[in-house]
Design a protein around this nucleic acid. Structure first.
Lengths: 198, 198
DNA sequence: TTGTTGATTTCGCAA
DNA sequence: TTGCGAAGTCAACAA
């Protein structure tokens, strides 16, 4: 038994907040779920039959407010933006680079950017906001597959991110993958539509 | 401008909740951070200098409560439990299996369980609650390393999880890794202390 | 409906 | 302090 903040949101979710844990509640139930009040308890049940049971001994405060849905939040600088900007400025990777296409399809998922270097060699680019080992593994899988295609092989790999963790860099370089740290501000700054030819 | 729930927790975090997004706030700032009130705005700044700026036009309700820290929440069935139970009942993997040790150390991190099969061959086990591609990659890295050790090689891999995603299973089996679906209830059921010899 | 990917993950442990 | 692994992710998009 402890003092807690109970929060029922309009989407049906029920949150039990303690005073720690940053934005994460101590416990919760995600929508869709049903809330049954009775005998000092809330019983919250989701579709899978899982239950969150709250015993209420005393109410310090209780109020309800309509929040509405509204525009909400606009994000900037997510991976999709990095991908778009880098595709437009593929020369960031080196002189003579040419874009083949974004979201280049393969059997195991799309490669973020496929391009060719000055010598005409195929280059697969994996883009992350934060470059960690997962991303290197993902690019490695793509490279293994792409290099089986005689029309493409040999395909080099480039791992591009705003920040690359040391361990990810080590793994990438061990595998012959080039690491590139992207400067989002610089990419965005150069992305002036009036300076673009097409 | 919209009606929002502003929540300042004792750990310093500031949460802006809308009526959607389940347990996640529309926007937030994680501790440690500082909150400066002034002129209808809250300016929340973290250590890295990032800012969350909230403009307040009207207050519908305002209250403060001491929540305390308390025991909180006890979890059951996390990976550590699966690992302990499987180590105690290593025969789940097959007759004649013997435990070498849990958290078997390697240069790139500990292998969850190292054991030997009936024929005496080394087996590295990676345990997950939910088996996804990441886990297969992790086990693959361990196997590559372990198989360079002439005292251990050849080392087989077993990928054990309560639930294994099809893509993870395919990747694992392509690499000769055995997939095992763990039944937590069954493992726990057998783990009756009164039935244990030590 | 199902699967896959990205995200301001947070938290705990150990080196 | 830093790095790494685990977690009840959630939401958007595509097949």
């Amino acid at each position: 038994m402890a003092t807690r903040l109970l929060l029922v949101k309009a989407d049906g979710s029920v949150l039990v907040h303690s005073d720690g844990g940053s934005y994460k509640p101590l416990n919760w139930m995600s929508p869709p779920c049903t809330l049954v009040e009775g005998d000092g308890t809330w019983t919250v049940t989701n579709k899978a039959g899982e239950q969150l049971i709250v015993t209420i001994e005393q109410v310090e405060h209780d109020s309800a407010h309509e929040l509405g849905v509204d525009p909400g939040l606009v994000k900037d600088g997510v991976e999709a933006h990095l991908q778009k900007l880098l595709a437009e400025q593929i020369h960031t990777l080196g002189d003579g680079y040419r874009l083949v296409r974004r979201e280049f399809p393969t059997a195991i998922g799309p490669v973020d950017i496929m391009c060719r270097d000055a010598a005409g060699g195929a280059v697969a680019v994996e883009i992350k906001r934060r470059g960690e080992i997962d991303g290197v593994e993902q690019l490695t899988r793509y490279l293994e597959l792409l290099n089986r295609d005689p029309l493409l092989a040999p395909v080099r790999g480039v791992f591009a991110a705003q920040e690359i963790k040391p361990q990810a860099r080590t793994l990438a370089e061990d595998r012959g993958i080039t690491c590139v740290v992207l400067d989002y501000e610089a990419l965005r700054g150069v992305d002036d539509p009036s300076q673009r030819l097409f």
